[in-house]
Design a protein around this nucleic acid. Structure first.
Lengths: 130, 130
DNA sequence: TTCTAATTGCAAATGATTCGCAATTGGGAT
DNA sequence: ATCCCAATTGCGAATCATTTGCAATTAGAA
């Protein structure tokens, strides 16, 4: 549980009960990327939805969470640790974690790359059978 | 100009004036990824915005366009040809095309990968100077 | 414990995208 | 070339994710 406090260490963010509850959700084992709606539901009334949106953004700025783009209608976030990517089944939504195979690239117009996304879309074995 | 007709060849999509106008935009030289709003503006009244949304989706299903995720608030599309990726300047929005450096990966739960995204976010040289 | 700036909840505002439906139109059949 | 009809369009209203204003609450420093 003090994993939660560790997360906020050194960040100038007040430790509100809402924030602890939100962090707790992302700290769950194998927690898949979450959007505001799913976090809000997971909170079962422990925080307002606007508060969830506000904090997802704050957590991202603080480096606690990172944005994940799964080509869904809403923005997803996950813990910013154990850098990896995702394969998403476009049929059932299943998400599998994927190692990063990113190689150096040379860009003529850029000074510095700070982040990158790399997601894969396809059909999982289970849906392929159906 | 008949490049436009070639695009629709073999697809069961009616060649409306609106669709030709939309296609023409994407066929422009070095056309960066466009969202519905920018396409709509580019059309200067030649099509309704709902028509733009509908056709971007139809074009994508037909394999004419592909979705690009630039971590902006709206969905962007570009011509589905010359497979490549993007580097986006998070300060000024500049987009540079990037070669695909995607390597094989092994997925345990997937039968088949149909598509992938890989975008880079950073600061361009011009913004770094400012 | 007190104080104050940060944070929250609520409700209203935005902005992107979608939908319903009547009017229009492309393109095959005649 | 003309007719016909399903596909497509324009318009406006609806939806959905996300943001914002503001008064009430609260964490944490003094």
């Amino acid at each position: 549980m003090d994993q939660i406090y560790k997360i906020f260490q050194g960040k100038s963010i007040k430790l509100t009960t809402q924030r602890k509850a939100i962090a707790r959700i992302f700290l769950g084992k194998h927690c898949p990327p979450q959007d505001a709606e799913s976090v809000f539901k997971g909170l079962q009334g422990k925080a307002d939805k606007a508060t969830v949106f506000r904090n997802l953004e704050i957590f991202e700025s603080a480096g606690i969470l990172r944005k994940v783009d799964l080509q869904k209608d809403s923005v997803h976030y996950e813990l910013n640790a154990n850098h990896h990517h995702h394969a998403v089944c476009t049929s059932c939504g299943l998400i599998e974690a994927v190692k990063c195979t990113f190689r150096k690239l040379d860009l003529s117009k850029f000074r510095e790359i700070k982040d990158h996304s790399m997601e894969f879309f396809g059909i999982c074995k289970s849906c392929a059978k159906g």
